[in-house]
């Protein structure tokens, strides 16, 4: 793990204990084509990633991607600029974006290999978990109805 950059995988591991069977948890490395494949055919997608936009560490952003693209200043650090934001926009262009698509982006500051989460990001972890679980409940209600 590389410090706060592990916020996505750590959240997934925590969710695995309580995740309803209708929801599939997938860890991807940030490559756009992987992302495209993961969201294709899904009714809904909730995506969790680290970001740096200038907000204080531990800030949780929530974006409804169906309504609008991820803001430009949250564009991920990605080889060939082809990461999360580009992957989602490609899914939109190819008409493969799920009907519901939400991104939680957590402001991070520490990327050193082997380092754990910083106190700032640890502090927001339970809030993030609750927010994602809230999305799960909402999704299950919506899809059931």
């Amino acid at each position: 793990m590389r410090g706060d950059d592990a916020i996505g995988p750590l959240t997934l591991r925590a969710l695995a204990k309580t995740c309803p069977p209708e929801i599939r948890l997938i860890e991807i490395e940030g490559e756009a084509t992987q992302l495209l494949e993961a969201v294709t055919g899904a009714t809904a997608a909730i995506i969790i990633d680290a970001c740096r936009s200038g907000s204080p560490a531990g800030t949780i952003h929530r974006f409804d991607v169906v309504k609008s693209p991820i803001p430009v200043n949250l564009g991920a650090f990605s080889s060939h600029g082809f990461g999360l934001a580009a992957g989602l926009e490609l899914a939109r262009s190819l008409k493969q974006l799920p009907r519901i698509c939400v991104v939680f982006a957590v402001e991070v500051i520490e990327f050193n290999p082997g380092a754990g989460l910083t106190p700032e990001v640890s502090f927001c972890f339970n809030e993030l978990l609750a927010a994602v679980e809230g999305e799960f409940e909402r999704l299950l209600l919506e899809t059931a109805s």
């Binding site: 580009a86 926009e89 490609l90 939109r92 262009s93 190819l94 008409k95």
Partner: peptide, 14 residues
Amino acid sequence: GGVEMARDHGDLVR
């Protein structure tokens, strides 16, 4: 860019 191209050339991009 590729994202814009995908709107008109979906099969090619796929």
